[in-house]
Design a protein around this nucleic acid. Structure first.
Lengths: 223, 223
DNA sequence: CCGGTCTAGATTGTATACAATTTTATGATG
DNA sequence: CATCATAAAATTGTATACAATCTAGACCGG
């Protein structure tokens, strides 16, 4: 019986993947960083076996590059990646918006709630929270598309863009009109106006991208 | 000084990933199949350590699902996946076509060459070769987009769709007008007519998808 | 016959140990 | 000083062994 409410203890490598991914997305392990197995294994208190499996997992996700006999590094990022990623992202977000609009998905309430939270987070200079709120909006749209494969593709994109932001952003750079944009997009979706929603998303993403590229040029091209 | 022309012997797990992926894409390991580590390790003549790493890699690619303490299975496929995958794929292919059209990428020669090869492959009933020729066309468009992230996304899609085709196709079902479609699309791209290319691609993919869905309904819903 | 418990077998998870390879340090040589 | 050869150290790759967990079947009371 004892029906395992605590859920069988997950294998070491499970939580490890999440911890490593988190560290990579937030830039604690910056692009290009060498991931030495002995060091990481000691840092996480386990042997290299589960660690290596976690690295392979992340390799499959595109966050890590592994060269035979030479080890793993956090996948590097170049300015062109920013352009390419946003180009791809817009195509994915547009599809998600169209599918969400078809069913008049109403994300207005949750979007508004996040807007309020964002104000607090801005006041508290809580950048981590801002990232999470931003992600939640886009994740909601993805979920509303009712297409798990699209959700996965957008998730992969988000990971890369998160890395870009952490690599090229300074805390102050977070655009304040993000949350107004979100509300405008949610409005369009709720009214089934897909084209309008896509147009607004396009402006939103272009602005975000250009801000990253500008801050990149300002702070030096050598990230 | 013996400069390693033979390229350092790649680690066991490298070739293994390719071999496993191949087996999954061609349906030799059908969707839902349990991947028992001991069996696979023996089959490939190695210990479970490199094998497990290969499975993690494929998990990251979305080809395999691993449950803690219960093992890995080939990721299942449902009819809805076919719809979702093609929906996503069209968005990706459309983006690739637009970028390729911007630079008037001329894929007409290689496309025509493949058309000729396809005729031979059809005569020889070489289904594997047909798949490869089909993939090459779409890979060429992806490459012409000059966006590695888009290439990766399309590659992931192609993997899943390959699985679908092998799961739901009979040898005879390969649509013969595929190669005419390809030539028409390449023409449009070479003339920079992106909208036309996308329209043709849309028709091409819709036809392909519907043929899969039909053959699915015909041969029973229990793949 | 049904549902539940228990144990044996099968299977996965990981630490240890060692082999293979690459990188770094060293010194010899021109 | 630059360049190459060589040895030592660091690091990755994998087999073995064993612990942890799950699965299947035997058994039993109802």
């Amino acid at each position: 019986m004892a029906m395992n409410l605590a859920r069988s203890v997950e294998p070491r490598s499970e939580g490890l993947v999440d911890a490593l991914r988190e560290a990579i997305l937030t830039g604690r392990y910056a692009p290009g960083t060498r991931l030495v197995q002995d060091d990481l294994a000691e840092a996480f208190g386990m042997s290299r076996i589960p660690l290596r499996e976690a690295l392979r997992r992340l390799e499959g996700e595109g966050l890590v590059v592994i060269s035979p006999n030479r080890g793993a590094i956090v996948r590097p990022l170049a300015p062109k990646d920013v352009v390419d990623l946003y180009d791809l992202r817009l195509a994915l977000e547009a599809l998600a918006l169209r599918r969400a609009s078809e069913r008049y998905a109403d994300l207005r309430a949750s979007t508004k709630a996040r807007h309020a939270q964002a104000r607090q987070a801005i006041a508290a200079r809580n950048l981590t929270k801002l990232f999470r709120l931003d992600r939640d909006f886009h994740a909601d749209i993805a979920a509303a598309s009712d297409n798990p494969h699209l959700v996965a593709a957008l998730g992969a994109q988000w990971s890369q863009i998160m890395r870009v932001m952490h690599a090229y952003f300074q805390a102050g750079d977070y655009p304040v009109d993000t949350w107004d944009d979100h509300e405008a997009i949610a409005d369009a979706v709720a009214h089934g106006e897909a084209d309008l929603a896509v147009e607004r998303m396009s402006a939103h993403l272009t602005g975000s991208r250009d801000r990253i590229l500008a801050s990149l040029r300002a702070h030096g091209d050598r990230p």
